[in-house]
Simulated scan of single mutants.
Amino acid sequence: MEFRDLKTQYQTYKNEIDSAIQKVLTNTNFIGGNEVKELEQQLSEYVGVKHAITCANGTEALSLVLMAWGIKEGDAVFLPDFTFFSTGEVVSFVGATPVFVDVDRNTFNIDTEKLEQAIVQTMEEGKLTPKVIIPVDLFGLPANYPEIEKIAQKYKLLVLEDGAQGFGGNIGGKRACSFGDAATTSFFPAKPLGGYGDGGAIFTDDDILAELLRSLKVHGKGSNKYDNVRIGVNSRLDTIQAAILQVKLKAFANHEVTDVNRVAGHYNERLKDIVEIPYMPEGYISSFAQYTIKLKNKAERDNLQRKLKEENIPSMVYYVKPMHKQEAFSDLGYAENDCPVTNELCDIVLSLPMHPYLSEEEIEQVCKVIKEFMN
């Protein structure tokens, strides 16, 4: 059994993927080929925004936006404590200070009440200037953007949606990566829409920001790549990855989001009275980058994971350590017990196999082991 079954996906679309790769090999346009522009157009249409700008990976997608916005030393950027390291890393990378906010225990996403408290506290302390909120669409579920955008407007902050895991989710029909002032996603192979290597994209309706991002991602180019008008970086999506992603985006839009929600429904039906299953707010749809359950304590979680492994069932813990406990951020002065919800979640969460090609028999096998263990 696969945790995320890229092998079956490839076999399903082997002819289309092989043909797309062969076309790039034949044309030899490995950097900046037509497939890149075509993919950007398809991505912007799928998400429902004016601009999709591809880049080398999801981390650099975040960095590029912060660079374009001029975020720097002395600025505060607010983000959830329960997330992957890169969300905070990019803030420090541009010289600003990440401010970690505890999350909602139900959704795993940033707690909007605690977010506002953190903004007010930062303003009152007067050491940093609040500038940006980076909500994360964890495990495929979009963050609470209706409330986040109200808070951002109240305190005149920018919102950068980290949709690395959220691509394909939506709130009331509005798709992930269309919220805030800009949004990003990742095409890391295990993400909802993954390539066969690194890749990322930025989404925005802001024409000026889009133009600046296209310059920054290619060495700060002006009219051409040898006319450099600013300091930028080298962050381009390879043509081969774009070609692969064109095939996979079509499958993603046609059936994969529907199928992962079908899988989640089967899990929910079997596990709802056994463990804490994922919470789904009304009007939200998740792309289920992960299907994550909660156990009673760390010992129970670890023992269940051990039992699943004995039965050759893969599982993962996202995340074993909160952001505020990462050694790289030790100079920020957080206490061990800050962000208590995140501290608890790191001890009790467990992600089960989840992908569009998971069979009902495999789901039943996973759930049977969990039920036997819990009983």
Rank of each mutant, 00 (worst) to 15 (best):
Y226K: 14
N15V: 06
K272Y: 04
V159I: 03
E360R: 13
L64D: 02
I363H: 02
G168M: 09
Y279W: 01
C367T: 03
F78R: 04
N57L: 02
D102L: 10
N234E: 14
N375M: 09
K217H: 01
N34G: 03
L6G: 14
D181V: 07
E276W: 00
G70L: 08
T129A: 10
V49E: 07
F373M: 05
A299W: 12
K50Y: 01
L358E: 07
Q165N: 08
A182P: 15
N312F: 11
P192S: 06
L138R: 06
H255Q: 06
K221N: 07
S286R: 02
L295Q: 04
V257W: 06
G194W: 06
G222R: 03
L295A: 10
Q246D: 05
L158D: 00
K321G: 03
A210F: 08
P281K: 01
D206I: 01
G180R: 13
G220M: 12
A299C: 03
N224T: 13
I313C: 06
L350D: 10
A201T: 01
E372V: 11
K325I: 03
A143P: 01
V349Q: 13
V120K: 15
L79R: 07
K50N: 07
E147D: 12
Y318G: 02
R262P: 12
D111Y: 03
A76M: 15
Y319P: 00
V320D: 10
L193F: 10
Q290P: 00
T184E: 07
R236E: 13
I71A: 11
E38Y: 01
G333T: 02
A242I: 00
L350E: 08
V317K: 14
I244G: 00
I21W: 04
T239K: 04
I171G: 13
V349L: 12
D331F: 09
V317R: 15
R262Y: 12
V49M: 03
T107S: 12
L249C: 02
N234C: 08
F139G: 02
R270L: 14
Q165W: 09
S178Q: 09
K294S: 11
Y155E: 05
D162S: 09
F100S: 06
T83C: 14
S359W: 10
E149A: 02
Q246G: 15
Y318S: 07
M323C: 03
C367D: 01
D205E: 12
G172W: 02
V260Q: 10
L158R: 07
V65M: 05
V233A: 05
T112A: 11
K325C: 05
T107D: 07
R175Y: 08
M123L: 11
V247Y: 07
M374K: 15
R230Q: 06
F82G: 04
V341P: 14
C339G: 00
E73F: 08
E113K: 12
Q121G: 10
N109Q: 11
K150H: 02
T342F: 07
T258G: 12
V94G: 01
N29H: 09
H255M: 03
I148R: 08
R175T: 02
Y145L: 08
I110T: 11
P135Y: 05
Y155Q: 05
K307R: 06
A118P: 11
T258N: 15
Q246V: 01
D181E: 10
G169L: 08
V218M: 09
F85E: 14
L352S: 14
H324D: 03
E269N: 09
